[in-house]
Design a protein around this nucleic acid. Structure first.
Length: 211
DNA sequence: TGGCAGATTTTA
DNA sequence: AAAATCTGCCAA
């Protein structure tokens, strides 16, 4: 079942947690790929200096201010793309960065795109994940409820909401502003999460709590 | 294993 | 100049 519009209208933190365990599917020309979301980060619109929306709307972050349930894809570090799910009321500028997936289907295609057979290296970070699934920058702003890129749960995906006790909450990775906010969520003890992410510097300093 | 340089666009 | 990243190379 495709995630309903109402799913994305909850608070960004709630959506970041609820996305864990759901399945992202990309039907690309070369073939389908899919994976189960195991790591997310929330980016808020105010009191969050790490958010692209913090200083208001720009050409780059415009899609972040669009309706919830769409993709916000941006270019970073001159090399990589990151994929976000827009959340909250339209115009506020909030999103959830989808960091890591557990690959489910199209694994051979992912291995070709990533030039590695190591399952751990396919989708264990935001840049890798976009590359593995063949997500294109032109898909920025596309709906995640129809089209080639969709978010699903239940039904044939077998995905179910995760119990709160399975979700760990830590500071976000790779930021300096707002590093104390614990807005990163992942499934406790998942074997495909990179050790580097779980023990990231910002994480080591602060507590890692269950939600 | 842990740390860091380098790839290079977007924004402040 | 620093960034919501990743890889490869280095030292221990």
């Amino acid at each position: 079942m495709i995630l309903p519009h109402s799913f994305f209208e909850k608070s960004t933190v709630a959506v970041a947690q609820a996305l864990l365990g759901t399945v992202l599917i990309h039907d690309a020309l070369e073939g389908p790929t899919s994976g189960r979301i195991i790591e997310t980060e929330a980016y808020l619109f105010k009191d969050d200096p790490a958010s692209h929306a913090y200083r208001g709307k720009t050409k780059r972050n415009a899609e972040m201010f669009g309706p919830p349930g769409r993709a916000y894809i941006y270019f970073i570090y001159g090399m990589y793309h990151c994929f976000n799910v827009v959340t909250g009321p339209e115009g506020t500028g909030q999103a959830v960065l989808v960091r890591a997936l557990e690959p489910l289907s199209g694994i051979e295609l992912m291995q070709m795109r990533r030039k590695t057979t190591d399952l751990k290296a396919l989708c264990s970070g935001p840049g890798k994940r976009v590359q593995a699934m063949g997500i294109m920058p032109s898909q920025n702003g596309s709906s995640l409820r129809c089209g080639p890129l969709t978010l699903c749960t239940g039904g044939k995906t077998g995905a179910k909401p995760m119990p709160k006790g399975d979700i760990v909450c830590t500071p976000r990775v790779g930021i300096t502003n707002g590093a104390e906010l614990r807005l990163r969520f992942y499934l406790k003890g998942h074997p495909l999460l990179s050790r580097r992410c779980i023990h990231a510097k910002s994480t080591r300093r602060a507590r890692c709590d269950l939600v």
